[in-house]
Design a protein around this nucleic acid. Structure first.
Length: 204
DNA sequence: CCCATGATGCCCT
DNA sequence: GGGCATCATGGGT
């Protein structure tokens, strides 16, 4: 099966690059959350890029640093977690050089390790107690992904080069990438048409 | 499959 | 005070 030598953590240089490139290349990588020794992980299947300088949908648009968005303006390779609609959390990875104000929203992952704990986080039920639909919906959305991993605002600003949360490249390549417009940003005028959403399509 | 709706609290894009 | 980088549910097609 898999050769462990082809498994390595993404480093700071990976994140310190063009946000669109990072968003595209995060597809197929493995997001790992080390929850007090319990490793929860999944393969990233959907991302969106947000670039404050040119993007009316970005929390950094306009360049003003606030209490909420300050980690997006910080150094690359950190998490940016925020609350949305009063009840869900979304997680980004911070990209490009410090002060730039950009990131990649993690919009979905395919569960890999410790799926039972993800089910408990999401539904308060074990894997063998949930329906097929619940299994399909375990982590296929930005809010669902955070709920499955139990990621909340306490995980905002964590360094992805450390051990609590990080992203692995296992050189998985059995997919193609689809690019589309981003969703649920109708207010963002011309930016709503940017093709900044990336989806993993499994190869047949 | 699609669409509409209510939930719910924080931030000011 | 307006609006939001969402989700679950329930209806119709």
């Amino acid at each position: 099966m898999k050769d462990k030598s082809n498994l390595y953590k993404l480093n700071r240089d990976f994140y310190n690059r063009d946000t669109l490139l990072v968003a595209e290349e995060l597809i197929g990588k493995i997001l790992v959350y080390n929850n007090n020794g319990y490793i929860l992980s999944g393969r990233i299947s959907e991302t969106e890029a947000y670039i404050g300088a040119v993007d009316k949908a970005s929390h950094c648009y306009g360049g003003k640093i606030t209490e909420r968005n300050k980690t997006l303006f910080g150094p690359p390779g950190h998490t940016y977690v925020y609350m949305i609609y009063g009840m869900y959390y979304c997680m980004n990875v911070v990209t490009e050089q410090e002060g730039f104000g950009s990131g990649v929203l993690l919009r979905g992952m395919i569960p890999l390790e410790n799926i039972d704990m993800m089910c408990l986080n999401r539904y308060n039920k074990h894997l063998n107690e949930i329906s097929k639909i619940q299994f399909k919906n375990l982590s296929n959305g930005p809010g669902k992904l955070c709920k499955a991993l139990n990621i909340t605002k306490k995980e905002n600003g964590l360094d992805l080069i450390k051990e609590e949360i990080y992203i692995l490249n296992d050189e998985y390549k059995n997919y193609e990438i689809e690019k589309t417009k981003r969703i649920n940003i109708d207010y963002a005028e011309e930016a709503k048409d940017f093709m900044w959403r990336f989806l993993m399509k499994k190869r047949s």
